[in-house]
Write a protein that binds this DNA or RNA. Structure first.
Lengths: 211, 211
DNA sequence: GACTTTGTTTGACACTTGTCAAGAAATCTC
DNA sequence: GAGATTTCTTGACAAGTGTCAAACAAAGTC
């Protein structure tokens, strides 16, 4: 956790021991996430993952015990990237409007730019209902996202001198419902969906605050 | 659509032509839905479906062109059962409270009694993001559910002499978000989740109405 | 340099998958 | 009942799966 992950993606440099194998794992995971995001959990095989990477399918098994091990590592890795997305906005926003606008902008941005990743997330969350091995990781991420939404909402409440009228899980479920709707519908109508999402979220947000 | 589906599940009786093969299809679909609900889309094979039914795997292919054909038939069949669940409540409720209570009761009831079916639904909706062949059927159901929620909300608004403050897609996304959260969390905590769901929905409902 | 450790490739295994086809059984038609 | 049609069973196929292990290469150690 204390390692300074510098630049230099080209030169493998001198990374010894546990750090090196961690690098490989991350590289594998990143590659796996790409294919998973495109194909979905159901039709992604280890060989497909290996093919779309610079490694062979044997390497995958050298670094991960089995398929579930790889995928749950991917999920955990993904989690670190997604939950702090809005932190900067929350901290710098000086007014409720600024916060809302910044939040919505980032939200639609990630919707558009990282659609496959979000598709995969909803896919994996569904899979976790059938595969216990995924459940812990999924609920951990869910909690992280819930906290993220909660930070935004409480900050928003502060800025308008009000208090939230719903608890954290409720707020998360509501916003997540809107976001999932957007993710599902994005493929069919990429032009309209993002603006619809911002419209809807900004309609709902004020209703969750009492002044 | 006009056929009167009577009782007599034992005696195949005299059902001729297209009706008979439709019966088999329905039987197959019902059996398939059961296994799909337990195992999820990813790890349900045609053979598994056949094994858990009274038929052999060859029969499946006699009545359905391929796997997708079967599953999308299942989805369509499922749709007819799920979207009118609340119609009676909507029609008979004489007050807003009665409507809310009836709606919430039915909602938690189906959550508890038909968990596998709901799990499957969210699974298939996620799959539809990766498999175009499912997309049309899934969006059709989504629309049906949206209309269902909308009927409830507008009726609710009528009974309190108000009007909805969000449009139909928004209302559906919000309620669906809460419901999906409940479905996902149900396995982990079957005792608390249903009451939490009713709490949250009944907290949210009034916020979607302006009097 | 030789030797050990670590990392990688390759090919194989047992198994499951969707699909199909040939034939048996049941049903219907006359 | 004989013959034709529909329905079902069985077994096979090619392709793909996760997993593993033995050969090979690279890096590190003395």
């Amino acid at each position: 956790m204390t390692s300074a992950e510098a630049a230099e993606p080209d030169r493998p440099a001198r990374v010894s021991g546990i750090d090196k194998i961690e690098r490989r794992r991350v590289a594998l995971a990143e590659s796996a996430l790409k294919t998973l995001g495109e194909l979905g959990y159901a039709r992604t095989s280890l060989r497909e993952i290996a093919n779309n990477s610079e490694f062979t399918h044997g390497v995958v098994h050298y670094y991960f015990r089995d398929k579930i091990d790889l995928i749950s590592y991917c999920v955990r890795y993904y989690k670190t990237k997604c939950a702090q997305r809005y932190d900067e906005v929350v901290e710098t926003a000086a007014s409720a409007d600024e916060l809302a606008t910044g939040f919505l902008a980032k939200m639609t941005q990630t919707l558009v730019e990282e659609t496959p990743m979000h598709r995969l997330w909803y896919d994996l969350r569904a899979q976790s209902m059938f595969e216990e091995q995924l459940r812990d990781d999924v609920t951990a991420i869910d909690q992280l996202l819930e906290q993220m939404i909660w930070r935004i909402l409480t900050r928003y409440a502060d800025l308008v001198d009000g208090t939230p009228t719903v608890d954290a899980p409720t707020a998360y479920a509501l916003i997540d419902g809107l976001f999932e709707q957007a993710v599902v519908g994005y493929a069919a109508d990429p032009d309209e969906v993002p603006t619809q999402l911002t419209d809807r979220v900004s309609q709902v947000l004020p209703k969750l605050i009492a002044t």
